[in-house]
């Protein structure tokens, strides 16, 4: 320091403005974390590229749009005349996901409202932990539950020959999706500033009135986003629907019919196909469809949730 006071000026000025080791380390780290940062984009693109690469042959050479989307006959292993209609599979996925949402949406919204607005202290913490643990149960365990616990129960209670059906898978999927939707919905409710609640309560409103008139409208987008993510999750679920639906290609007439889902079809059949074969490529084509639909669902959920932050 003593030196810098006796000899200030241009010489010192030039001396300090040099790129040192730390400067280069900083630049290197910046480059590394940037590459990792964009890795998520690379992976999503990679998924699309590789799944399309394997499935493209089917779309170009064999696929008849009308047959593929509008006929319910899926018999790819028929050696003479394989048929690739996914209408029944789509119906299976839609019916199971739809029923699951009927189960999950009211209960998870109710639970979210209870946890966010009514419960307090220890109860609240305990419930949140429980919900988080429920969300962690692996899907293959859920499938197992559908297979060995729900199946006999449904046969017994409803007096039907088979308990692996839309109802079974719908309930299982609903129970699976509910914890996730609950925690997203709870986040959305908690994101509503407390001053809104305080202002309404100061005017003499009860907790329910506050929730209904103030909190729910303010959290509307977040809740909708949570529901959409739940739909996406149910739609893409594989192991549980593979094990609990009965896996029969069928357009369901009642909730006791067995069905087969798009995801489960891939999981069940891919192992028996020849790499690069028509059947193999057809399954990848279903994969492209699944990717695109979940992409759109996730994108809309994100846009809707972002809507509340802007507003």
């Amino acid at each position: 320091m003593a030196n810098s006071t006796t000899a200030p000026g241009a010489a010192t000025a030039a001396a300090f403005d040099r790129r040192d080791f730390d400067w280069y380390v900083d630049k290197a780290v910046q480059a590394i974390v940037f590459v990792c940062g964009i890795s998520a984009i690379i992976f999503v693109l990679g998924i699309f590229v590789f799944v399309t690469k394997e499935g493209l042959g089917f779309i170009v050479n064999h696929m008849n749009f009308h047959e593929f989307f509008l006929t319910p006959y899926w018999s790819p292993s028929d050696a003479d005349d394989p048929e690739y209609g996914i209408l029944a599979l789509m119906a299976g996925t839609a019916s199971v996901t739809g029923l699951a949402m009927l189960v999950a949406i009211p209960f998870s919204l109710g639970a979210a409202i209870y946890i966010a607005e009514f419960a307090s202290g220890k109860t609240r913490e305990t419930l949140k932990v429980l919900v988080e643990l429920l969300a962690a149960i692996p899907s293959v365990v859920w499938g197992f539950i559908g297979l060995v616990i729900m199946n006999p129960l449904i046969i017994k209670w409803f007096d039907v020959p088979v308990g692996l059906c839309v109802l079974n898978a719908g309930i299982i999927l609903g129970l699976m999706a509910a914890p996730i939707m609950t925690s997203i919905a709870e986040d959305a409710l908690k994101a509503v500033p407390d001053r809104y609640r305080e202002a309404a309560e100061a005017m003499g409103a009860t907790r329910w009135q506050v929730t209904y008139k103030v909190v729910l409208p303010a959290a509307k987008n977040g809740l909708l986003g949570g529901v959409l993510l739940g739909v996406g999750r149910g739609f893409g679920e594989t192991m549980a629907v593979l094990m609990a639906t009965g896996h029969a290609v069928n357009i369901p007439n009642s909730i006791f019919d067995s069905v087969r889902a798009l995801t489960a079809t891939i999981a069940a059949e891919l192992g028996e196909t020849v790499v690069g074969g028509e059947h193999y490529q057809a399954l990848f084509t279903i994969g492209i469809l699944l990717f695109l639909v979940t992409f759109v669902v996730n994108l809309s959920a994100d846009l809707i949730v972002r809507g509340i932050r802007k507003g």
Binding site: G9, D17, D20
Partner: peptide, 13 residues
């Protein structure tokens, strides 16, 4: 110190 800070090589320094 006579050095234009807009054109620094090492702002940390």
């Amino acid at each position: 110190n006579g050095l234009d800070t807009r054109h620094l090589k090492n702002v940390y320094a």
